[in-house]
Design a binder for these strands. Structure first.
Lengths: 108, 108
DNA sequence: TTCTTACGTAAGCAATCACTTACATTTGTG
DNA sequence: CACAAATGTAAGTGATTGCTTACGTAAGAA
């Protein structure tokens, strides 16, 4: 989980993901979109591969990279959990308040 | 955006977020859940604050922290975008294939 | 086989990160 | 006011990160 987040938390890697989100691209062509050197991009691709956010396919001497959507599921559901837990907490707070108010009315 | 992702990409900070996701907690009580020293946690809280993922409320000498759900929206929608763009790409691919096949049928 | 193309890998380096200890600040209490 | 409690801030340090240059490797072309 943290590996995925760490992989996402870098501007060049985010840009790589955007680049290959709509089409499979070879490493060289990806690198050409950046100011950094080709090895730098190659290393970023490796990080993204390890995190399971992209996948690689070899075709002759080229290596084609594409997004791996399933890789994002874990991150997605983690965020959803934060959202859900918070909503649940708010809900309980409201219900608690309602109970208190009803009790006060009863006493009066 | 990258700030939020970087803030999320650290185990202790993730745990802090989980801790305060259902209840507002003072800094000291948060720190007590960890092996790290209190200053370390204080620094993590600062990172999370800067990223807009949590908010602080002062009460006497204590500082209470709670999740800031809006802070997660940007991350959420970024992930959604990756998902959507990929779906769109897949859709176009299928339609392309269908057109090709129809053409072949026509020629025969 | 030799050369070229498209890559990855290794080593080294400066910047950033997460942590610790020591100190400063703010608020309530006797 | 003096003191205690709760917390942040500063400075220093080892580990990790992202980058570069130099080198290694695998696949197709001559």
């Amino acid at each position: 989980m943290v590996d995925k987040l760490k992989a996402l938390a870098e501007p060049n890697r985010l840009e790589i993901l955007r680049l290959i989100s709509h089409e499979e691209l070879p490493a060289g062509e990806i690198a050409r979109h950046f100011n950094a050197t080709r090895p730098a991009i190659s290393q970023h691709l490796h990080v993204l591969l390890d995190a399971g956010l992209i996948e690689e396919r070899r075709e002759g001497t080229r290596r084609l990279y594409r997004l791996r959507a399933e890789g994002f599921d874990e991150v997605r559901s983690m965020l959803k959990e934060f959202w859900d837990v918070r909503l649940q907490a708010l809900k309980q707070k409201v219900e608690q308040k309602q109970r208190t108010q009803r009790r006060r009315h009863g006493r009066k």
